[in-house]
Each structure stands twice: as structure tokens, then as C-alpha cells.
Amino acid sequence: MKIKEIIVVEGKDDTVAIKRAVDADTIETNGSAVNKEVLERIKHAQEVRGVIVFTDPDYPGERIRKIVANAVPGCKHAFLPKNEAIAKTGKKIGVEHATPEAIRKALAEVKQEMEDVHSEIDFESLLDAGLIGGSKAKERREKLGVILKIGYTNGKQLYKRLQMFQISKEAFDDAIAVVLQGEKQSE
């Protein structure tokens, strides 16, 4: 599988994992200290070939994703569920620990970032679905992120990401139904 876009990853181990899974070029941010030089390379890559941001499904990875997305509008995003990015020791999480199959799947389900769009989903919908506040909100957001392939977010980020990727009200409602059905079955 050949990827046209340049994939933005956190480090060398991520590049090795990506290259095991697909034929692609990468730009490494070298962790969360994303400097201006790296951002300029990413901007140039976006202009020439396009960019896919593919960071770890953890807080530092989301921070890097946000920095890159703010500096380089219009990026594509690949998301790896946490359970597919856990090291064999069970202690570390990262793209470098994912199987080639999981990486290929995440890259096949890339989401395109859209700017200045208005979603049919409002903040009230998130409250009504129990995605903000409440004892099950975090768990529901995690499951929703996997179903919609938008990664894990906190409540505020979820609202922004639903808009950014133009998730329809219908897709949102269907995903929430699956999340709630799963809760009923586990009771």
C-alpha cells in the first residue's frame, strides 16, 4: 500500500512501524517539542503532497496533533484506538507498538479536516448523550471515538472534532446508539 501524503509521526520508532506497514514517507516531530523548523517542513509537505497526522493515542500525541493542525490547516488525520497501540508489556502506548494491520486500517480510514464548517450536532446533543459530565462520559467518548474513527477526546475537543470532520447528525446518532446498546448488554 503506497501512501501519497507524507505522514507526520512523533519519532523514529513510529517511522519504522509505518514503513513496516505501508510504503510512505514521514516527518518526525521528535516528541511534543514541535519546533518552527518542523512545522515549516510540514507546511511545505502539505502544499506539495498533503499531510496525514498520525500521532499516539495519548495526551502528548493529541497535543502534537493540535499543534500541527493549528499551524497547518487542512491536514488529514489517522487515529489508532488505544487498545491497538499498547506495548506487549502493557505499560506503553504508541504507534510504534501497533501491528502493521492496525496501521494500515487507521490509514485507510483517514479523516479530512474541514475548516469553518457548522455541524448539525450541538453541545446540547453531547450533554443529552451523556458525553459530557457524568460517571460514564469518558468511557462513552472513548467508545464513540473508536466507532467514528476520530480518536479519544475530552468533551470540548469532541465538539470541535465532530465539526472538523463533518460528522453528520445521523452518523453521530447511530454511533451513540451502538455505545448505549453496548452498555445495556454489559449490565
Rank of each mutant, 00 (worst) to 15 (best):
A98R: 01
S168G: 00
D173A: 14
K43G: 04
K36A: 15
R49P: 02
Q46E: 12
E96V: 10
I27D: 00
K156G: 05
I132M: 08
K12S: 07
A175L: 01
E113D: 10
L126E: 04
Q112D: 09
A78E: 03
I150G: 00
V8C: 08
T55Q: 05
T89I: 09
E96C: 01
I52C: 00
G31M: 09
C75W: 09
L162F: 05
K184L: 10
R161S: 10
H118G: 11
N30T: 10
E84H: 14
K12E: 10
I147V: 10
M1P: 04
A108V: 12
L144M: 07
A33D: 14
A24K: 06
R104Y: 12
Y152E: 12
E115C: 09
D25A: 06
T153L: 04
V146M: 13
G90A: 08
D174S: 11
T15V: 14
D173L: 05
G133Q: 11
I93C: 08
A21D: 01
I64H: 03
K88V: 14
D122L: 12
D58P: 04
D128S: 15
I67S: 08
Q181D: 15
Q157F: 09
I103W: 05
G61R: 00
G151D: 05
I18E: 02
A98K: 02
S135K: 12
